Deep mutational scan, measured.
Amino acid sequence: TTFVALYDYESRTETDLSFKKGERLQIVNNTEGDWWLAHSLSTGQTGYIPSNYVAPS
């Protein structure tokens, strides 16, 4: 499932994924509650993102 970032997010830990508003993200795993494992289609990096910062594209 592809989502789009609603806001900028700066990672707080090394497992988080930083992203910019408008960036497209492929969700890898969304069974972890409020933090989803995502892959950035812009940077190619993978990490955890706050689910309330993204919406379906």
Rank of each mutant, 00 (worst) to 15 (best):
S51N: 10
I27A: 10
K21M: 08
G33S: 08
G22A: 02
H39I: 03
T46W: 06
K21N: 05
T2C: 06
E10S: 12
H39N: 09
S51D: 01
Y7R: 12
A38C: 03
D34L: 09
T46F: 01
E10F: 12
E10L: 10
W35Q: 13
T1P: 01
L17F: 15
T43Q: 07
E32S: 13
T31C: 06
I49A: 01
K21D: 03
S40R: 11
R24N: 06
V54E: 00
L37R: 07
T31Q: 13
Y7D: 10
F19M: 06
D34M: 12
D34F: 08
R24S: 14
S57T: 11
F19S: 02
W36M: 07
Q26G: 04
Q45G: 12
I49V: 09
T2E: 11
A38T: 02
T15C: 06
L6G: 01
E23T: 04
R12Y: 05
R24F: 10
S40D: 08
N52A: 11
D8S: 06
L41A: 11
T2W: 08
L37C: 12
R24L: 12
Q26I: 06
Y48G: 06
A38V: 12
E32T: 10
S42Q: 06
D16K: 15
T1G: 12
E10I: 15
T46C: 09
T2L: 06
D34S: 06
Y9A: 02
L25G: 00
S51Y: 06
D34Y: 14
Q26W: 08
E14L: 05
P56H: 14
N52Y: 02
G47R: 01
Y9L: 02
S57C: 15
S40P: 02
N52H: 12
L25I: 09
K20E: 09
D16H: 10
E14Y: 15
T31A: 13
F19L: 02
V4K: 03
E32F: 05
Y48M: 14
T13I: 15
S11M: 03
R12G: 10
G44V: 01
N52M: 06
N30W: 09
V54P: 00
T31G: 10
W36S: 04
L6R: 07
S40H: 10
I27F: 01
G44W: 02
Q45T: 04
G47K: 00
K21L: 04
N30S: 08
A5I: 01
S18P: 05
K20Q: 15
E10N: 12
Q26H: 02
L37F: 14
L37P: 02
Y9D: 00
D8A: 07
P56G: 10
W35P: 15
E23H: 02
S11E: 11
T46E: 12
G33Q: 14
E14V: 08
Y48H: 14
R24G: 10
E32H: 09
V4W: 08
P50Y: 03
L41W: 08
G33M: 12
V54W: 01
E14A: 10
V28K: 15
A5R: 00
P50V: 01
T46L: 03
E23A: 02
T15K: 14
T1A: 14
